[in-house]
Simulated assay, not measured.
Amino acid sequence: MPLLWISYQAWTLNLGADPAEEITDFTGTWTLRFLWLTLAVTPLRKLFGWSWLIRYRRMLGLYTAFYALIHLLCFVTFILGWRLDLLWNEVTERPYIIVGSLAFLLLLPLVVTSTKKMQRRLGRNWTRLHQSVYLISLLALLHFIWQIRSNYLEVLIYGVILAVLLGYRLYLKLRTTHLLRMSKVHSS
């Protein structure tokens, strides 16, 4: 739906003074939204017992990758005009482009290994690999933060949501570690 919406806005010439920037920002924002929705599946499932959500996690992750690719293509097409010299300068000189590129590159193995067959094939390594989504989310947020020039409210909201999503996971990990320690103490 977001892609249809921005396409309609472009078709009706309703993208404001800088359509290239509007489209690039829009696709980047939707990349973050889908990434956060993907990260929200586990906490919502565990807190509210919404087991049905797990069926959508892979799809949400693939939407994240799709919008990240669209965001990158919009940047390279509309902002840089496919000039490799400009692309090289951006990738080597601008910190927000460096972290955004790194986040995108780290996302690619998750896409390639998102199938059930790859999950079975990789076993425990699949889980370890897919835990890189936490680093990807931090890099994506940093990419967003470093682009803001005046209004930090939106990035603050995204930051708080990510802190809650990752904080919940940290809480579960610490609680599990504590419970394991306690069970070892009591069994001795």
Rank of each mutant, 00 (worst) to 15 (best):
R181Y: 03
R181I: 10
L141G: 10
H130A: 02
L141T: 04
V133H: 03
L129D: 04
E154T: 10
F144H: 13
F144K: 15
G167Y: 09
Y171D: 05
S137F: 07
Y171E: 06
A140N: 02
L166S: 03
L135R: 06
L165S: 03
L180P: 08
I157C: 08
I148T: 14
W146P: 12
L174S: 13
L179N: 14
L153K: 03
T177G: 11
L166Y: 05
T177E: 08
R181G: 10
L156C: 09
L162E: 00
G159V: 12
R149L: 13
L129A: 09
L170C: 03
A163S: 13
H143N: 10
L139P: 07
H178P: 06
L153M: 13
L139G: 08
L156G: 04
Q147Y: 09
Y158M: 06
H143L: 13
L180G: 08
L179F: 12
V164N: 11
K173H: 04
L135Q: 04
T177F: 15
I161R: 00
S150D: 07
L174D: 11
L162D: 01
Y171S: 04
G167Q: 03
W146C: 13
F144W: 10
V160S: 02
L138E: 00
S132A: 06
K173P: 02
L135G: 01
A140P: 02
H178Y: 09
L156V: 12
V160M: 00
Y158E: 05
I161E: 01
N151M: 07
L174P: 04
V164S: 03
Y152A: 01
S132P: 01
Y158P: 01
Q147H: 10
A163L: 13
H130F: 00
I161P: 00
L142E: 09
Q147F: 09
L135M: 06
L179I: 05
H178C: 14
H143Y: 07
L180C: 11
L138H: 05
W146G: 08
L174K: 14
K173V: 12
L129Q: 11
A163T: 13
F144L: 15
L139R: 13
N151L: 06
Y168V: 05
Y158I: 08
L179G: 05
V155P: 06
W146Q: 12
L141Y: 09
L153F: 10
G159A: 11
L156K: 01
R175D: 14
N151P: 03
Y134S: 02
S137V: 06
I161V: 08
Y152C: 01
V155R: 09
S150C: 01
I145M: 07
S137L: 04
H143G: 03
Y171V: 03
I157P: 11
A140H: 00
L129N: 10
L142F: 12
I148V: 15
Y152V: 03
I157Q: 08
S150H: 05
I157E: 04
Q147A: 14
Y152D: 00
R169H: 02
L135H: 06
R181A: 12
L180T: 10
F144T: 12
V164K: 10
I148G: 13
N151R: 13
I161W: 00
I136W: 12
R169N: 00
I136G: 02
L162R: 00
A140F: 00
T176R: 10
L166T: 07
Q147M: 15
L162K: 01
